[in-house]
C-alpha cells in the first residue's frame, strides 16, 4: 500500500511536470540556465584571479563561456534580474551614449580606489560593470592597455568578481523564492493565476525576440542611407552574430515548452526558429560588418525578417492559447 501511494505520487508528479508548462519552463529552461550562468561566472572570476592579462586565452575562454550563459538568459528580464538593476549591472547594452568606455577610462585614468572593494565598486557607474565593460577591458585596442598595469589587472578582477556575485545572487533568488512564486500562483501571490505566470514567460519570449530583431540586428542595420556597423553588439570580441544564435536557440527552447500542449503550433514555431537559425549559421558575417554594402545588408535584413516572422507566429498562434491578447495600448499608441 505504501509503495502504491509513493508510486502514484511519483506518477502524478511526473504527469504534472510533463503537462505543466510553468514547471517545465522552470525545471528545464530557467533554473538550469541560471545555474550555468552562476557557475561560468564564478569560473570567470577564478580564472581572472589567476591571470588578468587581457590577451590570456584562458581568461578570454572563461569570459566567452560566462557571456554565452548570460545571453542564454538575457530574455528572462523579470523578477530576480530586475531587482536592484541587476540586469543592467550584468549587461549595460545598448550603450548609445558610450557610458561604458567613458566610465572605464575615468577609472583607469585616475586609478580610482573605489574598485578595491565590492561595496565601492557597487557605487561606480553601472555602465562600468558587467560583460560589456569586460569586453572593453579585454578587447578594446585602447582600453585593454589603458591605465597602470596593476590597476588594469585589479579592474579586470573586480569586474569579473562583480559579475560572479551578481550571477550568484540572481541564481539564488530564483532558487530560494522566485521559482516558487511562479510555480504557485494564488490570490495573494505575485502571480494571481496560472495564466498570469504563463503570460510572464510568454512576454519574456516576445521581448527577447524584439530585442534580437530591433537591437541586435536593427541597431547595426541603421537605415539604408546610414548603416551603423559599429553599433553591433559585442563586435570587439567578434560575438555579434553569435549572440543572435545563442538567444534564438535559448528562446526556441522556451517556446517549445510553452507550446507543449499544442503540438501543431509548436511544430510551426520551431520550424520558424530553425529557419532563422539556419540563416544565422550561414550568414558568414560575425560582426555584421557587411551592413554597409547592399549585398551584406540584404543578408542581415533577411535574418531580421525571419526573426520577425518567429515573433509574428508566436503572437498570432501561441498568444491566444495562453490567454494573451496583443497590448491594446502598446500596439499602436498615441
Amino acid at each position: 500500500m505504501k509503495h502504491l501511494c509513493v508510486s502514484l505520487l511519483l506518477m502524478s508528479a511526473a504527469t504534472t511536470a510533463q503537462s505543466d508548462p510553468i514547471d517545465s519552463a522552470l525545471d528545464t529552461h530557467i533554473l538550469p540556465r541560471m545555474e550555468e550562468l552562476s557557475f561560468t561566472s564564478r569560473r570567470l572570476a577564478d580564472v581572472a584571479a589567476q591571470d588578468c592579462t587581457p590577451t590570456s586565452a584562458d581568461l578570454r575562454t572563461a569570459y566567452g563561456k560566462a557571456f554565452d550563459a548570460w545571453i542564454a538568459v538575457s530574455h528572462l528580464r523579470f523578477g530576480p534580474t530586475e531587482t536592484d538593476n541587476r540586469a543592467f549591472a550584468m549587461a549595460y547594452w545598448p550603450d548609445s551614449k558610450g557610458f561604458t568606455p567613458k566610465a572605464l577610462s575615468a577609472l583607469l585614468r585616475t586609478s580610482d580606489p573605489a574598485i578595491q572593494t565590492a561595496e565601492g565598486f557597487a557605487n561606480v557607474s553601472i555602465a562600468a560593470r558587467g560583460f560589456y565593460a569586460m569586453e572593453f577591458l579585454l578587447y578594446d585596442p585602447d582600453l585593454s592597455v589603458a591605465g597602470a598595469p596593476d590597476y588594469h589587472c585589479q579592474l579586470v578582477q573586480r569586474v569579473a568578481q562583480d559579475i560572479a556575485s551578481t550571477a550568484e545572487t540572481i541564481h539564488q533568488d530564483w532558487n530560494d523564492t522566485y521559482a516558487t512564486l511562479l510555480r504557485t500562483p494564488g490570490p495573494d501571490g505575485l502571480y494571481r493565476t496560472e495564466q498570469e505566470a504563463k503570460q510572464e514567460l510568454y512576454k519574456s519570449l516576445l521581448t527577447g525576440l524584439q530585442l534580437t530583431a530591433d537591437m541586435r540586428l536593427g541597431r547595426p542595420l541603421g537605415s539604408f542611407d546610414r548603416p551603423r556597423p559599429k553599433r553591433a553588439e559585442a563586435r570587439r570580441s567578434g560575438r555579434s552574430l553569435r549572440h543572435v544564435e545563442l538567444a534564438l536557440t535559448s528562446m526556441r527552447d522556451l517556446a517549445a515548452t510553452l507550446a507543449t500542449d499544442h503540438p501543431d503550433i509548436a511544430a510551426r514555431i520551431l520550424q520558424d526558429f530553425d529557419q532563422a537559425l539556419e540563416r544565422a549559421r550561414t550568414l558568414d558575417d560575425p560582426v555584421f560588418a557587411g551592413v554597409a554594402s547592399p549585398k551584406g545588408r540584404f543578408k542581415v535584413e533577411s535574418l531580421q525578417q525571419l526573426v520577425q516572422e518567429v515573433r509574428t507566429r508566436i503572437e498570432t498562434e501561441l498568444a491566444p492559447t495562453l490567454g494573451v491578447s496583443a497590448g491594446f495600448n502598446s500596439l499602436d499608441g498615441d
Binding site: P94, D95, S96, K97, F99, D214, M215, G218, R219, G222, R228, R231
Partner: peptide
C-alpha cells in the same frame, strides 16, 4: 522616433 535602444 529614432533607433530602438537609444538612451533618450
Amino acid at each position: 522616433q529614432g533607433a530602438a535602444g537609444e538612451m533618450v
